[in-house]
Design a protein around this nucleic acid. Sequence first.
DNA 1: TTGTACGCGTTATCAG
DNA 2: CTGATAACGCGTACAA
Lengths: 341, 341
Amino acid sequence: MASTLEEIAELSGVSRSTVSRVVNNDPRVSEATRELVLEVVRKEGYRPNLAARGLALGRSNVIAAVIPVGFENVLSDPYFPSLLQGMASAADTNDHFLMLSLGEPGFRHTVDEIARQGVVAGVIFSASKVDDPLLERLVATGTPVVSVGRPYDERVSYVDIDNRGSARQMTTQLLRLGYRRVALIAGPSFAPAAVDRSDGYADALSGFGLRVDENLIYEGDFSEASGRAGMRTLLEHRPDAVFSASDRMAAGALNEIRSAGLRIPEDIALVGFDDMPLAAEMEPPLTTVRQRPHQLGAAAATLLLDLLADPTGSPKRVILPTELIVRASCGSQLNQETLSR
Amino acid sequence: MASTLEEIAELSGVSRSTVSRVVNNDPRVSEATRELVLEVVRKEGYRPNLAARGLALGRSNVIAAVIPVGFENVLSDPYFPSLLQGMASAADTNDHFLMLSLGEPGFRHTVDEIARQGVVAGVIFSASKVDDPLLERLVATGTPVVSVGRPYDERVSYVDIDNRGSARQMTTQLLRLGYRRVALIAGPSFAPAAVDRSDGYADALSGFGLRVDENLIYEGDFSEASGRAGMRTLLEHRPDAVFSASDRMAAGALNEIRSAGLRIPEDIALVGFDDMPLAAEMEPPLTTVRQRPHQLGAAAATLLLDLLADPTGSPKRVILPTELIVRASCGSQLNQETLSR
DNA sequence: TTGTACGCGTTATCAG
DNA sequence: CTGATAACGCGTACAA
């Protein structure tokens, strides 16, 4: 039950320093004493005290995940849990811990305070809106930050998926199948991911020599309700296919289409984005773009740890691949196809 | 930009100790100097270094949330995010931080290690299975623990809802409406909450002088898929109503009922448990028991902090109220009724 | 009421 | 290769 360096030193008949070296894999220690000390360490179940280590080192091995989960509806799919799981997993394998901060306004301890307190070595920011002031403050104070999803500020490193390319490919898929009045249920314009997906949609249209028809675009907020409302509006303009920027909005759209007595995909094709678990269960199963929040979270944590190890470099970016998942809702059973980048 | 006690002392012309006392609201300091020091503290934006404080005090102000999220399906509703949000919120208002530990097997740093390292003052355990070895280890090492949901071990404090009473009330509701062949899609028997709900179901039946018919009980695992499979099995025995121990299983059951060409509630009534957001959106809207994960999380964190402040007392319990939410799926539009306890 | 001095457990520096 | 010893920033008996 010995739990300090001092005690281990006593038990193995060496000095504190030597034990410290052994614990930290310092090469400057003879193989013999290393073995000896390690034995005692194992036997006593010794673990270094992280507070003390953090104090001595001037840095901690705790990273914070900041998620401003203001909207209830953001919680309705396993995206954030998976993201967190990925971050926790990556942090763990790198001997770091994950601290959680739900950026609810009204929280007393804002993240920048936390960062300054030395508890946290770096921060992973997620679901930030465009031009988030909190993110700005963090950058200003020099706290290492990684954003999940492209941030407004060019200086911050981030991990993301290729939203624009994926949306383009999905829309192109619809166009290839012959649909010509492809509507878009977009995400909220304050979300970079939503903007990128809308851009990808436009890219695809112009790639086919088609012009963007504002009547065929509705801006939702990623919620199922907004998807349904959007679909109601769009139906007036007779689209033959709909690309929803999220599966949850697609679910709402699906309900509306059904209520209107239309069939999917015979009367109107429907595709989504995210491949949340529900997508495969829908009637008909939803064609969509698969992203892997778990990997995204893991990549974010890893990137942050890289930054911590080498604070000098310029902002880094990691773009994770997505997959086009073709199911019945788009009126085709083409083979599954992988978006490379 | 001054950030140590020493610097603040210098700037305000007093000693370190005095500044420390001011920061910690020690009464033994004159109002005059207090004002003076506070002014400097504010101006410099000073925040105490938590690592140092934790080291000196021998305890930290970080609590850990442990969630063994092995099953993908556990993530499919906002229960855990809400729970986490509640915990984070309560921790924050009490000047504590929340550390996340997904008890994935295969994690290198298990919670008991973390606790021993002094990083964490206490642990909130959630979704533990009956007789969880990790929980046992924590208790054995004397780490303050609070469980979300009744744990197997009698010695650990916990917060919970009245699963048994709520299930009894819900089942009784069905019996009052005249249903006599009330089936149960139970949760997994390793989950205390599931066991309690099954017991409540049985309570209600015996309250009406009915006997439990094993043919009308199916044990699922809280997943939608298991709900569907369970319903398929149960339909062979012609129930006139079904109580599902979770909304997600109810969703699966609903699909199966529909596939069988039966109407809800005309041919068969269906009720759930949880009141997840989707419940109100189902067709027909689902009668269910509402629990508030956010409050549960907040209560758990608060209880843990109480324990930390007063480690002596015997195990404490907090039972949160639930509400019976009556919607169309049970074939009645009675007024909403609150389960007191 | 205020200041001095020591300890918390670790790492790093510098002798040996 | 190993061992003293000084930080790291803070809280707190103890003394003034």
